[in-house]
Write a protein that binds this DNA or RNA. Structure first.
Lengths: 132, 132
DNA sequence: CAGCATCCAAGCGGATACTG
DNA sequence: CAGTATCCGCTTGGATGCTG
């Protein structure tokens, strides 16, 4: 953030700078994004080829998968292995650092899944209180 | 997901059902969302009033803060204490379950922050290779 | 103060078509 | 096969104005 400017002023000059205000948030968004979580989870088991991964995850468009993989590769979480053969073959796998985040995100995911019942219960209580 | 329909058919009937395909993803998005992370992190230290929290976080609109807090309250992560006084006073704090997620998310955030250097290094390598 | 309702711009994400 | 490029609808999210 440039010196001599308030956060509000900076934000006005450059909309959506909030995302960039905290660099770690961008990285966090990559790994916790809709498809990022699923990609990391899949790669935690083994390496995948592009469309293999696409089928495995299910419901993800080419565009989003490519975008997600590029972000994760650029951040150093995913390794891209392009074999110069015809037809092209590209393998995606986790880097050591990627393996670390993947496990953390996976742990968090598992925790959430394990607490789903409690969450649903809380929701019913919340919605019930509102209905009256 | 209704029986007798493929994922594709369901998706066509109800766009963006991907989000709902996996209930835990919705919960995960609440706690890892742009503002969710910051709210949980703040409440990890102590309870806050609405605009106090707004100032503390900085850069969040009323709308988004209210939305974030409601989602977290409905999921059972945040407790809302509205005192029937004039002017209104509302305190937000973490529930025991909220405290658990907050710590996990906070751990993940800290991990990311600690690895930021590695990420930036990876990015430079990635961008450098592309520039050629 | 704490929030809801409305409006509107920006960008996320899907479908499609095309390339190496 | 593994993408890139383009178009476009819908949601996200900010600004503003109003209520209890």
């Amino acid at each position: 953030m440039p010196a001599g400017l308030t956060a509000a002023e900076t934000r006005q000059m450059q909309p959506n700078v909030n995302r960039a205000e905290c660099p770690s948030r961008l990285v966090l968004e990559h790994v916790t994004s809709r498809w990022g979580v699923l990609v990391l989870a899949a790669l935690l088991e083994r390496s995948y080829r592009f469309s293999e991964l696409r089928r495995q995850i299910g419901g993800v468009s080419e565009k989003m998968l490519a975008q997600t993989l590029q972000a994760l590769e650029r951040d150093g979480f995913v390794r891209r292995d392009a074999k110069p053969v015809i037809p092209p073959r590209v393998d995606y796998s986790l880097t050591p650092m990627g393996h670390e985040v993947a496990e953390q995100v996976w742990t968090l995911t598992r925790w959430v899944e394990g607490r789903l019942d409690d969450v649903f219960e809380a929701r019913e209580a919340y919605d019930g209180a509102r209905a009256s």
